[in-house]
Design a protein around this nucleic acid. Sequence first.
DNA 1: CAGTGAGCGAGCTTCCGCTTGACTT
Length: 774
Amino acid sequence: MSKNLVIVESPAKAKTIEKYLGKDFTVLSSIGHIRSIPKKTADGTPPIDIKNGFKTQYEIDPEKKKTIAELRKAAKSAETIWLATDEDREGEAIAWHLCEVLKLDPRVTKRIVFHEITKSAIEEAVKYPRTVDMRMVEAQQARQILDRIVGFELSPVVWQKVPGGKSAGRVQSPAVRLLVEREREITAFEGSSQFKVSALFYHGNDEFKAELKQRFDTEEEARDFLESLEDATFTVSGITKSPSTRNPGAPFTTSTLQQEANSKLSFGSKATMAAAQKLYQAGKITYMRTDSVNLSGQAIASATDFIKRLYGPEYSTIRKFKTKNSSAQEAHEAIRPTDISLETASNNEYDQKLYDLIRRRTLASQMAPAQLENTTVTITISSHSEVFEAKGQVITFDGFLRVYGSNKEEILPSLTDGDTIHSSEISARQAFTKPPARYTEGSLVKKLEDLGIGRPSTYATIIDTVQTRGYVEKGDSEGAPRDVVTLALVNGAVEREIVQEKTGSTRGKLIPTPSGELIADFLTNHFEKIVDYDFTANVEQEFDKIATGSLARNSMLQNFYTPFHELIAQSGGIDRSTVGANREVGTDPVSSKPIFARFGRFGPMLQLGSQDDNEKPTFAPLPRGTKIETVTLEQALEAFKLPRIVGKTPEGVDIRASVGRFGPFIQIGTKTTKTKPLYVSLKEDDPHDITLNRALELYAEKLKLEAEKNVADFGDGIKILNGRFGPYVTDGAKNIKVPKDTDPKEVTHEQAKSLLKEAKPSKKRPTRRTSKKK
DNA sequence: CAGTGAGCGAGCTTCCGCTTGACTT
């Protein structure tokens, strides 16, 4: 064992650093945090003793036991231990937890930091060790304790008071509120339209487009205008040229990487981070969870060198970017390739696409601005005072656009003042004002970052959490068609045509569910502070004060806790029936029972009959696209027609159609029939009027699909199936992967049996996706 | 994965942030 033990957070980082430090150093990693606050303690004492100075218990994360055993062993034989966790709040805390667990004295144990993984930075860091900064550690503890208190005192309140309420927290709740508010702006948006006139002009053989500066409010005005152009002549009367420059964006942070990958490559935040993680572990890029736009001197130098060699010195401009975000902690570099000259970093198409984006962004950040020339041509009309305007843009020097960004040009023909030009086409088109855009994963991440909510390591999981809690869904509708009036001047007469355009597409957008709206409203009404967008920013400032020593940890926590807990205590008095909309839709003409629309345990629903009737009320899910506030009696009556029997299969099994938790579906067979019922989701068909023929068609398709999934069926319940993760053997209870080097079709019955026998009994694993802790 | 929903009441859930594999069907 070597004399020195260095402990970092990331195993991939450990590997890199070990290379730089030579044989006297062993580098190990903590793999993130090693201890956390238990949810419950064995002796029933509260994990956070609020009355006793917020005294906190910690427990070693079970999955870290092995890591810690290794660290302990290495620590025993090392002469000097260097704590090299990240230089931010969480990193400082990890260093302190390491001291506690490895029984090191934080007052003397060497603590080093580096912002970049380069030989010189590391050697420099080793020269100037410090000790663990306990104020910084206290700031982290304040953060962690506050988050735990908010989450664990507030969540039980929403379980009790909010139907469908599953959780609340400092980060997830404002995120849901953002989406809810945006959705309401969109609902409240009152669109208007104007008529935009555009013309195609030609000069010689060149054609170009121009727009009328003025817009018309009504179709009549637009029509009158077009008609008046019949005998008009058009003259070029003014050409202005103005140069402009465009600068490249800063190198990627986690947030901007997710935004760009989302908009340019249509990657979700999670997919982006997974690809980046692979690239990082392969040593192709620097650390991918960062809020810094800073590049190391070495990286700038090699990028500059590469740019000069490949594109020429005029393409190089050295730039240092500064973060605008005040909550940034900048423990790492920006995300960049480790070797800027490397073009291909992976065989995987997605990873490579992301790498290419990162590489081009990095290069662009050290390249010259693009020089553009904007041209505006004014065209006067003999019969009017209004003017047309044609705009052109020419790139006189592409600069960074050579590698990143769009270099589309709008080229105008060479025109001279006074030229008479002719129109080949003049038309007016109705242009609608647009409601605010729904958030995408990328734009939500940007908004959260702007508000200082969440951290680079959590943006992707925030988006996951709000979806798994059922507060938010990914949209998948293409949008509704809308009629657009177009008028064209043809041979002196105006021709009217209605064209259609799609509007309001929700594909890939984040949309709050009714339950999301409900919880956002509840928190806004009763716990305004927690969903206040300034709340995180304010506590963040206080954490900083704790870190610099101008505020005591406990007084900060107490100041927060006292009023917060008071609200929690009062919340018992909130009447559950006042939470969420509840209205009587009308009366069922058949049974003359009332129909209500309200929130149930599983979301919004319709209820036929009142609770004090002798007969049990019947329920139906609220039809998609309708709301408790607006659902009509007709819609409600339709919903109660389901489930309906569509008919029978040739074998005489009932086919029914209905709407369930996952949307409309048909079901062949019931739970009482011999074979398990088969469900087919309906995408285009309506369960209310789907025909028997269509249902049978879908049934046949589904059977075919099931058959394809089946590689082999040995008849005794043992099957070989094709699943999401490749072929596997199953006996109904256990699933065992077919070994990689075996052709699934070749597996014999005996082999399958032995595979199942050898396999360990399947462990029951907690199925939650977000908090896989202990 | 599925067609639930009140009432009765026990027992359960839950936070955010730092890291990777292990694991899933």
